[in-house]
Write a protein that binds this DNA or RNA. Sequence first.
DNA 1: GTCTATAATGTGATAGAC
DNA 2: GTCTATCACATTATAGAC
Lengths: 206, 206
Amino acid sequence: MTKKESTEEKILQAAEEVFVEKGMSGARMQGIADAAGINKALLHYYYRSKQKLFRAVFRKVFPRFLPEVLQVLTRDMPFFEKIEEFIRRYIQTMQKHPHVPLFVIHEFSRNPDEFADTIVEVISDLNLNLVELFKKEVETEIKRGTIIEIDYRHLFVNMISMCAFPVVGRPIVQRIGFENNQRDYDRFLEQRKTEVVKFIIRAIKK
Amino acid sequence: MTKKESTEEKILQAAEEVFVEKGMSGARMQGIADAAGINKALLHYYYRSKQKLFRAVFRKVFPRFLPEVLQVLTRDMPFFEKIEEFIRRYIQTMQKHPHVPLFVIHEFSRNPDEFADTIVEVISDLNLNLVELFKKEVETEIKRGTIIEIDYRHLFVNMISMCAFPVVGRPIVQRIGFENNQRDYDRFLEQRKTEVVKFIIRAIKK
DNA sequence: GTCTATAATGTGATAGAC
DNA sequence: GTCTATCACATTATAGAC
């Protein structure tokens, strides 16, 4: 690895930390430089502007929001097992990168046009057909009579919601429902890997 | 109403709009002054600093996140109907104030200590016993044999998640799953008022 | 109470030496 | 490629007239 690549990578890494924590408008170039252990001017040498650096970070982080986990949907395994695997992995990923969903949603909400192309691009690469694939699979199971009649979009959003929201809203949910006890909430999230699966399957199984 | 109260209220209203849209660090005092149709200096005359003004806004907006809707839980009505009413109202409130949950979560995450007292205070006023009350009600239904054995916390978080997340994550979900069609997504949210209820009841009914 | 003008500082970005 | 020094401008906040 050349020295150039190393520094550039170090900057991106530091920028990710700072941007994800403080958001675009809250982050400071000086803070990123400090986190990277380099000089402010170098940031501009490599990335020209704060906005361009942010775009690079967003491009890097976004895929984790619709994690590779979606790939699970392509596997050849029974429907219920697939759901189980999906839930387990999605919560796992959220636990590993707890700030990602809030970061992605927040920045994208504030500035949809800025990142629409990035999202479309990433989706096209990874997941375009995956939603369609999920739809077909749900419809197949309905015909088979293994699950009840249900709109695949509601089912899918229910799944994502129950996995992502407890992580996105953690600061508040933990404080209100768990006396702000971190260990308890970690246990709670761990339990959800099985609880959510049971809940979903019970809701749709015929 | 005196002129003083009127101006102060106008400022708070404008500040709410701007802060909720851009966040604490993204908002500008000039922008708030413009939105209120007054001069920048007046903001400081009434609220001394940006931070103090923001605190006032947060204090005002937060209760909508755990809406008065939680009060539904205190009503004397059958358990399943109560759930139905809760879901319907919660989604309704989120539709009406779609930016609130993201705003509250984002700002609180970035600065928990700054708002912890506000949250505790509001919760104490409104909802402290409500979670406890929900717990008892769930346990009663379990004993009665009307619903399956389930941890009330998972059930409650599931309910909140399926209502709030589709609104919080709307910009992205709408783009990925609904070709960014606003009407379709509005319809989708409207459907959820009944779909989520059916989903939940099916998941817990014995 | 409300305004204009301005101070005081923060911040993104660039120039230029090495 | 990396640094120091600095510019240009945005932004919060205050002073002081009315």
